[in-house]
Design a protein around this nucleic acid. Sequence first.
DNA 1: GCTTAGCACTCCTGATGGCCGAGTGCTAAC
DNA 2: GTTAGCACTCGGCCATCAGGAGTGCTAAGC
Lengths: 362, 362
Amino acid sequence: MSQPGLFRLDFFKAIPMGEELNERSRRILEAIVEDYICTAEPIGSRAVSRRHQIGLSPATVRNVMADLEEMGYIVSPHTSAGRVPTDKGYRFYVDTLLQVGQLDAQQKSRIEQYYRLDGLRVEERLREAGKVLSAISSYAGVVMIPRFTSTVFRHIEFLKLSHGKILVIFVSRSGLVQNKVIETETPISQHELEQVSNYLNQTLTGLSIQEIKAKTVRDMTEEKTTYDQLLRRALELSREVLSEEIGGEVFIEGASNILEQSEFKDMDRMKRLFRAFEQKSLLVELLDKSQRAKGVQIFIGSESEYSEIEGCSLITANYSSSRGTIGTLGVIGPSRMNYSQVIPVVDYTARLVSQVLEIEFE
Amino acid sequence: MSQPGLFRLDFFKAIPMGEELNERSRRILEAIVEDYICTAEPIGSRAVSRRHQIGLSPATVRNVMADLEEMGYIVSPHTSAGRVPTDKGYRFYVDTLLQVGQLDAQQKSRIEQYYRLDGLRVEERLREAGKVLSAISSYAGVVMIPRFTSTVFRHIEFLKLSHGKILVIFVSRSGLVQNKVIETETPISQHELEQVSNYLNQTLTGLSIQEIKAKTVRDMTEEKTTYDQLLRRALELSREVLSEEIGGEVFIEGASNILEQSEFKDMDRMKRLFRAFEQKSLLVELLDKSQRAKGVQIFIGSESEYSEIEGCSLITANYSSSRGTIGTLGVIGPSRMNYSQVIPVVDYTARLVSQVLEIEFE
DNA sequence: GCTTAGCACTCCTGATGGCCGAGTGCTAAC
DNA sequence: GTTAGCACTCGGCCATCAGGAGTGCTAAGC
């Protein structure tokens, strides 16, 4: 049935066609998605007609459902089961039907309660944010540490290691400490390194890394012929430090929450998901993508070619300083996720994290 | 059957009693453990008698097995199944029967291959070690970052944050960077902090944290009445920094390997295990315990009251610098673990890590 | 006196089949 | 355009059954 290319008799009925869904189909799709989110079981026409005063008989609902299925918004797992939303169905629901409320004060304070911040390092705070997200949403919380390049310079330190390697410690204005090992061709003494540190700390404080990059390039061309050994060294080293990304590490907290979800009774699927969690590169990619966008982002299932997280959705929001976005956090759970509840939680947590990090600024 | 307190007819047979196991029982226990490690299925008397030329009929083996069961080394899941080792059985096997070989050159180089170390931070190296352990053993690898207190001082840096808080960055001689936020009652300027940093960096370099602790206490009592503002400040701050443990973070790598193990088809058990992984405090405790001991340690199942890791074993070894143990790493897997293979891998990896960290010393 | 063959027994496993209920698509009537 | 009715499908559940693996016990053998 419903072979592509063949006309069906009811093709010309006043039933939603193409991309348009009429009011009735929308409401039915909405009912299916929402019921399925609650129950995790295929939804039948009878259930839809009974619930939520759509004044329609099961038979009518069945007709609409058949159309929704043909259009790819829902599928039935087997002949005599109800229907289940597809990724396309979720996407339509999220983009068009979903109404996200604000968190009420109680929920906010519940989030804030979780968020203990006394005397914690930035990293720990971010990790804590992940735990909050996972605890409140009961899915998994993900947090990406700020990338070096999106932070503001506060302090740099060079320490000489053996074999011509140098340990660079970099502190951002929000108190995030990152480090990196670089190698130099020309040997340099610890004393010189200290001079370079001092010089950079004096000249760069308060600049964003982007600005520093620009400045470095400018200085390098300008002072190519400089005889100031110190300056040359400083430029060389900063170029080396800036040459490669630092950070972008991802924390996943509460992954075990996902085990509770009934869709992961299927061991195989779960294994794949956990492997993806371990590898992290996939998540980094998604979170990077999200960081380039604004506001709450929703990635649904295997949209966008990531088969590993098939059946999962990711809701993200960016956290930021006064200078703009610095990182991303979110929640990952089954596509059958309680979007209307989780979205405001992610949104609010991102705001909270932004605030908390701001406090550290001197 | 075998009710405690009742004599059995064969109680006085020349069969192992009390803690002693005779040669025959040992060989049978060994066969059961080893077969079970391979197959993950209860081992019957027939299988034992056939395998590994014990010149005994199944019936005889059955008698011995009944005794082993009574003594608590094995159990049978149900009447008509074979026997499975208990924790006590594994313990006896590991302590008495197991013969651990050396790794051959090929295996060593396989481990070394995994271990790419160019230009990595210490933390990343340790994480990498966890990945190696998990990949080679196909269980989960665990690595505990050195605790502050077991390292050697290289460099300290104080940076002022808002609200009287101070960010302390601490670098150990092996290049490990850790940081911490402390609070002081009396306000202090960034300039003073720099003086303190300089002072401490000059006086403390090359001392172990233990030595510094001792020195600080000594200095404090000696110079209680000092009018040297700088020295007082330095002492105050170091006390604050030393007042609490830093580090002891645990990485778990390749946890998804454990999903492959047939004993974790039981979802519930798996969930508990993953929750324990997430909480980490349990692992920290175990690894701390191991760090206090010498050589390869083996924790089996729910020995020592940790019910969360029931059915799992943990094999650990310490890695060290020339000044002694600095951290611990290991492998966690099902009790039904290939001990003879994993033990030398853990041992060798610990040595390798020790070497690699040593390289950084200046 | 230890060892072993034999035997009855237990219990898990997997296959089979029947029943029930939920849900469907289609048709015809409203 | 909507709905009632109906035949049909199919998964889930349960009971049944046969097969097999393994056991404990007993009695015979070395």
